Simulated assay, not measured.
Amino acid sequence: MPAHAEEAYPNIVGTWTGVGADIRIASEKSGAIFSSENVTQVVTEQRDRRFTGTMHSGSKASEQFEVTFVGVFFDKEHFRWSEPNGFLEGRMIDADTIESCYVRTAPDHQNAACQTLKRQK
């Protein structure tokens, strides 16, 4: 049975870019590092409320990363995703703007960041 327009989840397939405000600790003996870095998120596939893609730092970022994620909308505005070292929670601001925050944990570092990303056209 086809979904009605009011039942459809936002289509977020595409490339999203923006600046992330990040804080991290690389080890227990180092202090906090505050940075603002370019971030790119690419959603490659979406089926109804579920989606997958990659997120990576800009080429000049102080911390280089690329992660693959899987995600799900839990309502028509808010989503969550999981990646190998943590999770992200976000929301749609409009059809081409998302706002999200993530937390990453690993034995040798911790990260938290928020970003507003715009879909590239």
Rank of each mutant, 00 (worst) to 15 (best):
E77T: 15
E66N: 12
A5L: 13
R49A: 15
A5E: 14
F73K: 05
K60M: 09
S82Y: 00
S100K: 08
R49K: 14
S57V: 06
A61Y: 01
K60V: 06
D108E: 14
H109P: 07
G71W: 00
F87T: 02
G53Q: 06
D48Q: 09
D94A: 00
V72F: 01
G18H: 04
N85K: 04
F69E: 02
D48E: 14
P107R: 01
V42I: 15
G20E: 15
M1L: 11
Q46M: 04
P2K: 07
A113N: 09
E6W: 11
T40R: 00
T68I: 09
I12V: 06
T54A: 14
A5W: 08
Q110E: 10
S30L: 10
M55D: 02
R47H: 12
V43K: 02
P2M: 01
R49T: 05
E77K: 15
T68E: 13
V43F: 01
D96A: 10
F74G: 10
T116P: 02
V39D: 06
A8M: 10
H4D: 14
S36Q: 15
V42L: 09
G53E: 03
R50L: 11
T105V: 09
Q46T: 05
G86W: 00
N85W: 03
P107T: 05
V70Y: 05
G86S: 00
K76P: 05
